[in-house]
Design a protein around this nucleic acid. Structure first.
Lengths: 185, 185
DNA sequence: AAAGATTGACAGTTCAATCTTA
DNA sequence: TAAGATTGAACTGTCAATCTTT
């Protein structure tokens, strides 16, 4: 492809294509593969992302709709639809926040937690296979470089940037929620 | 995120997430950015991909629908719709192949070629800015590793694999087309 | 005013079924 | 029989407008 451009339009600054087009194309393949794996559980990619975000947030497995939007880079309306679907299948519940009645708390149900864990187990094996061609050093470097890229994107992109914390909250606690009874502590 | 998983489910083999989730997320950001840039020309991501594939194939700027499907990883029906849109706006033309009347040849019009070149100029500048945080060595390594990943995907995925050539034709010629008059040679 | 969520109109994608040609 | 392309149904996503709450 790069050879084609060089032959057609010599001197074209095609360098960024090598990185960006490949990320996009790899992303397409990966998304397709992951989706295929999840379909065994009747889940879509986005549904799984929501369940996973809730699961890893720890008890009480609850996040606000806005937090979820940032976690999965989704539009406001799109998330509402997603949550409606998940609620209809009994995987999450939506409830109004008592402190600020504008916000919706999304809570993972037991069924949702079980499904997420089953799906994740298979998904991780699948992902491991997809990376088979890379050795440990390559994965390490790749992960690091992507991290650098991502930090730039998330800082620059005003669309998804929350006002407080989120990316900045890499300090002590896993996720500082104020109202968690946190019975497991 | 990895810290959250480790805290919630110790020992979970989350390693692949570092790579795969980041590729997916970076892909989302990049797709969004590229789309934003192209919208100035009234083009979508996929439309631009089609025009670009045609442009870089060289004179006579013509590919079959199936070749385009592989170039942009698209479903059969999706491509038809895409081509209808592009034809309606006068950027490509579809014509039946004379040798095999099942196949459709897609030809870039002059207007399509001009629009592609204008859009690409801006897009490359934009992409360059998106990579600003990476130095030359990082880009080089990243491109190489992604290449390794992609080769694995494209070999394994029966969905998009053409019967002859395509990826396998990394030998002498850029793209071995049999019927090109190739006046530029 | 401004933020959070929802709604409805709209566009784009995939999938399965179909048609034509090899 | 099979391959290439098209069609139509169903789904999913974005966007702009709206409603409620702060």
């Amino acid at each position: 492809m790069l050879e084609q451009w060089e032959a057609e339009i010599p001197g074209l600054p095609v360098a960024p294509i090598r990185v960006i087009a490949r990320i996009l194309r790899a992303g397409q393949h990966l998304e397709h593969e992951v989706t295929r794996g999840l379909s065994a559980h009747g889940l879509g990619n986005r549904e799984f992302d929501v369940l996973s975000a809730l699961r890893r947030s720890g008890p009480p497995y609850s996040l606000t709709a806005t937090e979820l939007r940032h976690a999965i880079l989704f539009s406001s309306g799109g998330l509402t639809n997603l949550l409606v679907r998940l609620e209809r299948t009994g995987l999450v519940m939506r409830e109004q926040d008592n402190d600020d009645r504008r916000v919706v708390q999304v809570v993972l149900t037991d069924a949702g937690r079980e499904l997420q864990e089953a799906a994740m187990t298979l998904d991780l094996e699948h992902e491991e296979r997809l990376l088979a061609r890379l050795d440990e050093a390559q994965r390490e470097t790749l992960a690091g470089t992507l991290q650098t890229l991502l930090i730039g994107f998330e800082l620059a992109d005003t669309r998804w940037r929350p006002r407080r914390g989120h990316l900045a909250s890499r300090a002590p606690r896993v996720r500082g929620r104020l109202d968690s009874p946190d019975p497991a502590a």
